[in-house]
Nucleic acid binder design. Structure first.
Lengths: 376, 376
DNA sequence: CTGTTAGCGCATTCAG
DNA sequence: CTGAATGCGCTAACAG
């Protein structure tokens, strides 16, 4: 049953024309007679012809319409949302994407990048595994393949990057807790050795010192950026001699875990203990008034990254521009006191507009979109 | 800077041999002199040569080492886990995967399948969008491309499928709630028109009638299979004249929403109201004793589906075998009474072993793995 | 063991 | 408007 592939010559033969005529029909060229076109199309349908992009891409002028997407942890909803955002714009641009999950393994990452290269991707978006170095992208960029790095910065890499304003977000969130009267605010979850964690911690410390509070090191509790990690972190935090009354969580997974842990002790998050989570994917998943969050809008970020990449692919020019996306502080009623007002609905350039639920949710965009151009 | 691609002839020239010798080296053929091999490899490294799979696949005997993966909602953690499982085995088998998210859009699905076909995928795994018909796979299977359908069955399609035992799982879960003394048990979430929902509902009804309880239609509350949907569902369920005391939730997202809704009314899930969720991804994400769940182990299912596909690709024979994967009922302490014991750690064939947290969690495998062979 | 030759399916001149 | 010729990078026969 394995039919041998039907090719242009087959349908050319069936339609009684030559292969190049068929080729012209395939590209919707106006240079071909209407009748002929109809005959050719009929033959195509009849024989079940499928265009072979592999062959087409072989021609030197062709660009592959394939991009690579590499993600460090698809299990984390944040990155899944990110991938969905990318998928959206890639699909509408007629691209298809290789997606690979590295699970933080730098070896896997190297393998998949190599593999994608062999398959002729014309661009790459990557949320790099921990420990990724600038050299890892060198082969790509050297052969003119644009690369966009998202979420985590890679020092010294001459590639475009799209990061979120972690420092400003953490600072705003911490200030929010302070404004509610909290004085002992913990920072829970994440590992100290990552850049993202470092930036968020910095914003947290800035807010504390600006308010004249001293940053007690014991208030910082590292843990895995997962729900289980959040449980562990809040449990350790509750053992601190002078207990915190609120926490900034590295992650929304951590925030969920913290809520679990609080409830296990009979405390209601938001009412008895202030909780703010980062990396908001909750917003999209639930209408429940829950935690206050610092939303980086992963899906929007994905769309934006994809657009950055497409721009470079289409222009044929690879850039190395770092852009820092602003984040939004989304305050929900459960955190008690205050409701900030929504700033008017900022949307990503070219993206679809982002709905914000009206009513008891308000948000503030914090940080500014800024770009810094590096040149070789 | 856009260097023109370096090809086999270039390195053949540099190494002072012919292209076919280079080709032999690339395939690690033993037919080539050790010295020559070294020279060739040196030239490869030197000139930064990258293998061009597009060209290689052009040869008629070649198989592309590319598979397609189509998912209906990557935003749902269940499907993200599923994709991760597939990714694992595909990567280790040296395949790269096109991943596309359809978001339940059947048009998008058609587009991406067509696109993948043009790119020469040698197999497809798909969790079909609602409304997918057997005819949608016809072009693939007709050209000898194996297809594995997961999660949702597509009636009449001559493809392999891997489904979970929804009926048995729902029945076991319901029986569990009954054994805890519940008499009014609601079925919350999901849409009545989907096959998956229908199967789960059937199991639910079976358990009720086996226990001599009548299946009050008002106890079934449909809603979106999301967290927000769960909130809505429990709110409607609480308006029923004779209130339920427990619920079987279509989804774990729904289950989470139900918990949100219960807490909003001051009820603690598990203690004041029995909650069982389906589609367990929670297990992997948290160590918190939470709901009782019916776990279909999405990641393991993904691995298994990938193995099924690879088998067909490698054997060159496309099959149409339906296999129903058994599910596990995971009972956690918070559901109150009873703790069942773990059956010994069933693992998927060839998969890595699945850790089960010891301690306060027990589980039972329900349903049996069964296969039914369809032949054309 | 190594070199020669001939396509794979398609797009692109260049002539009719 | 259409047909014949050429090459993309690689592999598979077949000779040396």
């Amino acid at each position: 049953m394995t039919k041998s592939r039907v090719t242009v010559v087959d349908i050319a033969h069936a339609a009684g024309v030559s292969k190049s005529t068929v080729s012209l029909v395939l590209q919707a060229s106006p240079l071909v007679n209407e009748q002929t076109r109809a005959k050719v199309n009929a033959a195509i349908r009849e024989l079940g012809y499928v265009y072979n992009r592999g062959a087409a891409n072989l021609r030197q002028t062709a660009s592959s319409k394939i991009v690579g997407i590499v993600v460090n942890d698809l299990t984390n909803s944040f990155f899944a949302e990110l991938a969905v955002g990318m998928d959206m714009v890639m699909q509408s641009a007629g691209f298809v994407q290789f997606l690979a999950n590295t699970g933080e393994s730098i070896d896997r990452q190297r393998e998949v990048i190599a593999s994608m290269r062999e398959h002729g991707i014309s661009g790459l978006i990557i949320s790099p595994a921990r420990g990724t170095e600038a050299a890892d992208f060198k082969p790509l960029t050297a052969s003119g393949v644009p690369v966009v790095v998202v979420v985590r910065n890679v020092a010294g890499a001459k590639v475009s990057s799209l990061l979120s304003d972690n420092r400003a977000g953490a600072r705003a969130a911490t200030e929010h807790l302070i404004s509610l009267g909290h004085r002992r605010i913990a920072f829970l979850g994440g590992f100290a050795d990552t850049a993202v964690s470092g930036e968020r911690m910095q914003g947290y410390r800035e807010a504390l010192s600006a308010a004249g509070l001293d940053a007690d090191a014991s208030l910082v509790v590292n843990s895995a950026p997962s729900r289980a990690g959040g449980v562990a972190a809040i449990e350790r935090a509750m053992l601190i001699s002078e207990r915190p009354t609120a926490a900034l969580c590295f992650n929304d997974a951590v925030a969920f875990g913290v809520c679990d842990g609080l409830r296990a002790r009979g405390l209601e998050p938001g009412r008895d203990f202030g909780v703010v989570g980062f990396d908001d994917v909750i917003e999209a998943q639930t209408a429940v008034p829950a935690l206050t969050t610092v939303s980086v809008d992963p899906q929007g970020m994905g769309r934006r990254a994809a657009q950055m990449l497409l721009k470079q692919i289409n222009s044929g020019r690879v850039e190395a521009e770092a852009t820092i996306a602003s984040v939004r502080l989304v305050v929900r009623q459960s955190c008690g006191a205050k409701t900030k007002t929504w700033d008017g609905g900022k949307t990503w350039d070219g993206g679809t507009s982002h709905d914000t639920a009206p009513g008891d949710t308000g948000s503030d965009t914090v940080g500014t979109d800024r770009r810094q151009h590096d040149r070789a």
